[in-house]
């Protein structure tokens, strides 16, 4: 999933989508497309490398530093290579009340890794995040766009076993 190629470029479909996004802002305000484009790039490459950021800068005619500053501010962008599935679990108070610490403890022991680490097979990366706006449905983690809520050990087993298959 985390391919690094020397010639970074959006796939034709994503390029078309990028153009569409850029066109939705007023004239001269194309920098507004920066976050959506970074999401698009991460979707394609799995993470945002400096080359990817330079490419995004060139699409928007802005300086590369403007992209580095922004990408490093927001926590969703992976600035280093990650595993196939990045599991982002919520560590904030309400989720802890809902049993988060036990659930995440189980998750860690099941994967045999700690926060910030990737399994040796490159399948899973574990990332701690703050409140995901699903507190009453906690404990919660997110993998890509999908939310997994009301986590129990059984549920975690199911999810991980399913994702381990492919």
């Amino acid at each position: 999933m985390t391919e690094t190629t020397n010639t970074v470029a959006f796939t034709p479909e994503r390029l078309a989508k990028a153009q569409e996004i850029i066109a939705r802002y007023p004239d001269g305000k194309q920098k507004s497309a920066l976050l959506p484009l970074l999401h698009l790039a991460q979707e394609q490459y799995g993470w945002v490398s400096p080359e990817v950021m330079d490419y995004v800068a060139s699409l928007l005619s802005i300086l590369p530093i403007e992209v580095y500053e922004v990408a490093s501010f927001y926590t969703m962008f992976h600035l280093d290579p990650v595993g196939t599935h990045v599991i982002e679990y919520c560590r904030t108070g309400p989720c802890c009340l809902m049993g988060g610490e036990d659930a995440y403890g189980y998750l860690k022991s099941k994967l045999g890794i700690n926060t910030g680490e990737t399994t040796p097979d490159g399948k899973f990366t574990l990332k701690e995040v703050e409140c995901l706006a699903a507190c009453g449905w906690g404990p919660v983690f997110q993998i890509r766009e999908k939310y997994y809520m009301n986590l129990t050990n059984e549920k975690i087993d199911e999810i991980i076993d399913e994702l381990s298959k492919d």
Binding site: P50, I65, Y68, E69, S72, F73
Partner: peptide
């Protein structure tokens, strides 16, 4: 005419850097 350094990261991890 061309800034190459800036502020990376945020909070008390923020740092002045050229990134690469």
């Amino acid at each position: 005419n061309k800034r190459v350094h800036g502020v990376m990261n945020r909070g008390d991890h923020a740092e002045i850097s050229t990134y690469i």
